[in-house]
Write a protein that binds this DNA or RNA. Sequence first.
DNA 1: CTGTATCCTTAAAGATACTG
DNA 2: CAGTATCTTTAAGGATACAG
Lengths: 165, 165
Amino acid sequence: MPPRTRLDGLNCSLAQALDVVGDWWTLLIVRDAFAGLSRFGEFQASLGIARNILADRLATLTRQGILARQGTAARPRYVLTRKGRELMPALVALMQWGDKWQSANRPPVLLSTESGEALAPVRVVTPAGKAVNLVRFSPGPGANSRTRRFFEQRAKDRSRQSSLP
Amino acid sequence: MPPRTRLDGLNCSLAQALDVVGDWWTLLIVRDAFAGLSRFGEFQASLGIARNILADRLATLTRQGILARQGTAARPRYVLTRKGRELMPALVALMQWGDKWQSANRPPVLLSTESGEALAPVRVVTPAGKAVNLVRFSPGPGANSRTRRFFEQRAKDRSRQSSLP
DNA sequence: CTGTATCCTTAAAGATACTG
DNA sequence: CAGTATCTTTAAGGATACAG
């Protein structure tokens, strides 16, 4: 597999997020961390992942500040940092989507740890609380020329033809 | 790369979601579809992806019912279906996370298409609207024995030691 | 128990030429 | 313009033995 193309050209927060958690194992490790796993061996047993791969992912996640090593160096625990815990909405949204659209067998249920209540479907809203059903993108303050051209082109396309479904 | 281990054993909606949209390109294609791209060539130019890979991903996304082919067979448009549009919360949550924690340069801004307003941070709440900051998992009605054992073990661990951060 | 270090395999990604 | 068909590359992933 040739080195995968980096999307540095288009500054997109999604690409940057995927750069860290976009690989198949990483989000599953984070999920297990939410479930309370913290030991190397626990992740290994839970995921059936090869040891070297797991070691690599844990190191990356630690370096990225998503997990933190605690306890002795010889037998550390990996626990979620704030940055890691803030992946929760994305994780839950993905799980709910998979649950709704992909699940053949009934998967585990998500509950609030604090209250034990079920979770509502994750929604996107404006600051005022109005539901948002469709989003568009605007070039940010630091958009580079490539990004700007991209959006200008998009605007032209849109005015010429019918818009999204 | 040996066939990656399938997590069929543990029925998890996250794993099932990642099975479909968990690869690096797929979510970026979906993002572009939200941005209004629909042509093969548009995706290709936007992402710099190889043609055969793009063709493969578009076919998979279409087969999965996330994109639908419209227009002539010779020059189709790929547009998001309902299933695809419902990836929005997950996509937005990921982008917001990347924006907050990973973005060096200021990325594009997300706006409501309907009202043009900015988006609030995606939050997880209970049906009553109470904020949820930490989640735990419960075996679903269809949990298999492996899954059940997993949760029983977790419960024991939790009672023995201090819980998550 | 938590890793490293090796070796091996292969499937995934790229490049490119070609077709309808 | 929208793919398909090849060919090649290579790095990601697995297995496993070994070390602290």
